[in-house]
Design a protein around this nucleic acid. Structure first.
Length: 477
RNA sequence: GGCCCCAUCGUCUAGCGGUUAGGACAUCGGCCUCUCACGCCGGUAACGCGGGUUCGAUUCCCGCUGGGGUCGCCA
């Protein structure tokens, strides 16, 4: 049996990094097993849901490289995939539960209940309010606003076997008659998710550990409806560096933010998959590799804390390795960041030639764009501090001589240029260092850059000589 | 507070009864060097505590402690 997995975001904002991780585990298992990955939009809360959020979330998935077989835009045999369009389905099954005595209409108003809650709190601040069951055995059906509640068993326990955590038992005494359908007729999460997971034939529900507590409620609903529950796999949580629930107070939690920082998408996936999953000592994985290696055997149970530094390092690692970020991919992805700097038309050959020297020092695509900047401006922007410190009048004059010495070098490559420059320095009686640094300022406008002769090789002869010869014009004062 | 869950370096983790407890990030030294990096070499650093079980516990069991989640007409 090919597994059917799903991720069910509620479109009330951006794609959260924790949500991305949950989706990833679902996706990985579906892909590794030749199963199906479904995206379902849980937009039953009309107040908070928006189409903009749907779009933002889908875009984030596209950027990450997580595709879906059924869901928004692609449709599928279990459509519709927006819960707001499935109200009739929920109503039908709710009626069925009411008829069979598993659920009942409750006419207590929110105000009444809130008042009771307050009263209890006043009497005993530590006590937990539970719905007193006022309407539990009510037999009339007045035509008044009402919610629908589940008639929870009071005795016994509800168990399920979690793929990660093992058997979990919850006493039914901890359960109350939870609400299934709101006054406005919209189903609540537990009802809608249960019905959809069944109707969409989901075989394994993978979600965050924060959902472990409503799994028993869902199991109860499956039983009430006469259905067999799917398997469940709960994932340990990603917590803030302080160990609290991860929110934007502690870190960047929107996937978009990492895109804007210039992290490669595969690195984002790589970092978040390592929360709760490992494969021996390996730290860096490409997406294809992840699909091959993923298994539930190595998913662990303990929560993890988010670490920006490690994350940044994973991003860097992906950028450094050509087997993870190919040259064309690198060029394509750095382009938008160059554009942000006003560099909109780049000579593709120059870009491809320049990347190898930059990729081992740029930690993000954004940094890479900054490092690449000087290749595409004539003249390059000059850092005043670098000029001040490294470009004396004498040094600049020497640049002009250096240009002449290097003119006509064949082949114009880093090794030949370096050999020639070193010989020249020796003849002039100057240290290579005292030539290289001023030359760097003349060629790149900066005090730090890829190795000088590589820069010259990439830049080509005419541009390199031009820049060297313009050095005297850069001398401060 | 009730219920559920978790517990190896600061952080992510490997370990599935016998290991000098391994790797990665971070951190601290050093090397390389035309700058900045990359890279390389090395250091500091962990099995929460107490009972069992066992010839032997980081590993299995119990308790404690600590941490987290959840208790909505949110999802």
């Amino acid at each position: 049996m090919k597994p059917r997995l799903r991720f069910a975001p509620s479109p009330s904002g951006y794609l959260h990094i924790g949500g991305a991780r949950t989706a990833l585990f679902n996706w990985l298992w579906a892909r590794s097993q030749g199963g199906v990955f479904v995206l379902r939009v849980e937009d039953t809360d009309q107040e908070r849901s928006s189409l903009d959020s749907v779009r933002a979330i889908l875009d984030a998935f596209r950027w990450l490289g997580i595709d879906w077989d059924e869901g928004p835009e692609v449709g599928g045999p279990h459509a519709p995939y927006f819960q707001s369009e499935r109200k009739a389905i929920y109503r039908e099954h709710t009626e069925r539960m009411i008829s069979s005595g598993h659920a009942y209409r409750c006419y207590c108003t929110k105000e009444e209940l809130d008042r009771q809650r307050e009263e209890l709190k006043a009497r005993n601040p530590k006590a937990q309010f539970v719905y007193p069951g006022t309407c539990r055995n009510r037999t009339d059906q007045p035509d008044l606003p009402h919610v629908v509640r589940f008639k929870s068993p009071r005795e016994g326990s509800t168990d399920f076997n979690d793929k990660v955590f093992g058997p979990i038992t919850t006493p039914n005494s901890a359960q109350q008659d939870f609400v299934l359908v709101r006054t406005d007729g919209y189903p609540l999460y537990n009802l809608a998710a249960t019905i959809d997971d069944h109707l969409m034939d989901i075989s394994l529900v993978v979600r965050g550990r924060d959902h472990i507590g409503n799994t028993p409620q869902q199991v109860l609903i499956y039983r009430a409806l006469g259905w067999e529950a799917p398997e469940f796999a709960h994932l340990p949580m990603m917590l803030s560096p302080k160990g609290e629930k991860l929110s934007k107070r502690h870190a960047a939690v929107s996937v978009d933010e990492y895109k804007e920082r210039g992290y490669p998408p595969a690195a984002v996936l790589n970092y978040i998959v390592r929360f709760g999953w490992s494969s021996g000592d390996q730290e860096i994985f490409g997406l294809d590799e992840l699909v091959k290696l993923f298994s539930w055997d190595h998913v662990n149970k303990s929560d993890g804390k988010f670490d920006e530094k490690k994350f940044a390092d994973v991003a860097f690692e992906h950028l450094k390795r050509p087997e993870l970020t190919s040259l064309p991919t690198y060029a394509k992805n750095v382009q938008p960041f160059l554009a942000q700097r006003g560099i909109t038309s780049t000579d593709p050959d120059l870009l491809l030639a320049a990347i190898p020297g930059v990729r081992e020092r740029a930690r993000t695509y954004r940094d890479a764009a900054s490092d690449l900047d000087f290749y595409f401006r004539e003249p390059p922007e000059v850092d005043p501090k670098a000029r001040e410190k490294l470009l004396s009048k004498e040094a600049a004059a020497r640049m002009v001589e250096l240009a002449s010495a290097l003119e006509g070098t064949k082949p114009w490559d880093a090794a030949t240029l370096e050999a020639k420059a070193r010989t020249w320095c020796e003849a002039q009686g100057v240290a290579i260092k005292d030539v290289a640094q001023p030359a760097r300022v003349a060629l790149t406008g900066r005090s730090a850059s890829p190795p000088l002769f590589e820069v010259m090789a990439v830049l080509g002869e005419p541009r390199s000589l031009d820049r060297l010869r313009r050095a005297p014009a850069l001398v401060p004062g």
